[in-house]
């Protein structure tokens, strides 16, 4: 029913919006939210491409069964990343990525 290019189109738009957030925002928390948006766009593309026929009945396409793995990795990434953000905030008192430059050589 829903054509695959339309699903991919939505996925690309969400991915680009997430990437713009990563590039243009200075707040590290919003940068993380952009990364989460990109994860969602990738999941959407996986699901859209998993619908390419032929699909045998009762067998889950790989595009669908990869999505829970992506979600699990995203959960681990978000937890570790937010712990790092809190540690950086305690050390420097800021979440601005222009201020957090102490690793610059």
């Amino acid at each position: 029913m829903i054509p695959i290019p339309h699903v991919l189109f939505v996925s690309v738009l969400v991915f680009i919006i997430g990437m713009l957030g990563v590039f243009l925002r200075r707040n590290i928390l919003v940068v993380f939210m952009g990364i989460e948006l990109m994860f969602n766009a990738a999941n959407l593309a996986f699901v859209g491409l998993g619908r390419i026929p032929p699909v045998e009945a009762g067998i889950v396409p790989d595009g669908f069964s990869i999505v829970p793995f992506v979600m699990a990795v995203a959960a681990a990434e978000a937890a570790v990343g937010l712990a790092l953000v809190v540690a950086l905030y305690r050390a420097s008192g800021s979440v601005d990525i222009d201020v957090l430059r102490s690793m610059k050589g």
Binding site: M1, I4, P5, L8, V12, R51, P53, V60
Partner: peptide, 18 residues
């Protein structure tokens, strides 16, 4: 460009995939 290059293939049904 990649998204557009996927032409509409096959008959997509409303069945539950997963």
């Amino acid at each position: 460009m990649v998204a557009v290059s996927f032409s509409e293939r096959g008959n997509d049904t409303d069945e539950w995939y997963a």
